[in-house]
Amino acid sequence: MKTSDAIQLRIDEIKPKDFQGDILDKYEENSKGFQWQIAVLDMFENDISHEIYRKWQEILKLRENYECKGCATCCNLACSEFSPDELKKRAANGDKFAKQFTSIFIPYNSREEARKIYPEYLNLLDETIDEDVYFYHCPKLNDCKKCSDYKNRPQICRDFPDNPLCILPKSCGFYEWREYAQPIAMMLHSMVEIIDYYKEKINLAQK
């Protein structure tokens, strides 16, 4: 069953008996339709949202069964949707991730320079994402392209990948986790978007 159909089914399950009307219709305050909308918003907030959170925590917990293999792909070729200047601005504005990232990673001069380092991974990115990304590398890599201070690596490195929507090469120790968890994560992401859509439309209908 599609995610949208599953959510619609749950909305219909709490619909008043023999009631005619759609959840997004406008109803008089305190009418059956209005109270149905209130019940649906409550279900989103106190039931489905909690279910999404619990499932997400299960995914993150499962990650603990996997570990870094030291392939150094994420060190040789870290990528971000933000340019170096954008990351610096975000760091200056208090973004903790950007602050850590800019304190560690150095940008490549060009995409082609990055491609020479790891052509297979660049090809994978080209096939997977449409938007522009920027590539960075860690200066602590040794001549063998391995981390020279692995035991003392910062938290941002220890936490990667922090979600199963990251693009990972097969050499990554977390690749199997990503392959298993990605469809679930995408479903949860879809649920959040659908719920937000309903919440926005219901709130507009009740004004």
Rank of each mutant, 00 (worst) to 15 (best):
D196T: 03
N123M: 02
I195E: 03
D126C: 01
K199A: 12
D42P: 02
M191R: 04
A72R: 00
E193S: 04
I195F: 07
K146F: 03
F135N: 04
L87Q: 12
L60W: 01
G70H: 11
Q57V: 06
S103K: 13
E131G: 01
L141G: 02
R90D: 06
R111I: 03
N30W: 11
K17G: 03
H137T: 08
L87A: 10
K96G: 04
E45G: 03
K61G: 05
R63W: 01
I14S: 09
I194T: 00
T102N: 04
N46H: 15
F19V: 08
C166L: 07
R178Q: 12
Y198T: 06
L141A: 00
D149C: 09
N123K: 11
Y136N: 05
R178A: 11
D159E: 14
C147W: 08
K207E: 10
Q182H: 09
D126M: 01
K99H: 05
E81K: 15
P161I: 00
Y150W: 14
L204N: 10
K17V: 10
N46Y: 13
I38R: 13
L168E: 06
K96Q: 05
N30S: 07
K96S: 04
P119F: 01
A92L: 14
T3R: 03
K140N: 14
P183A: 08
V133R: 14
I184R: 03
I129Y: 03
Q206C: 06
L122Y: 04
H137R: 10
I52T: 05
D22P: 01
S103C: 09
K140G: 00
D85V: 12
A91V: 10
N93A: 15
L41G: 06
H137G: 01
E28N: 06
L24R: 11
S110M: 04
L41W: 07
S190C: 00
R153S: 09
S31A: 05
M186I: 11
D149S: 14
D132H: 10
D5H: 06
K55V: 07
E86C: 09
L62Y: 08
P161H: 06
G94F: 04
K207G: 10
A181D: 07
A181M: 08
H189Q: 08
K99N: 05
C79H: 15
C138I: 06
D143V: 00
W177A: 00
A98T: 09
C147M: 11
K17W: 03
K99V: 00
Q206I: 13
K199Y: 10
L188D: 03
A91S: 15
F105P: 01
A39D: 15
K2R: 11
E58M: 14
D149I: 13
D12W: 04
K88Q: 14
N30V: 03
Q155C: 02
S31W: 06
C138F: 06
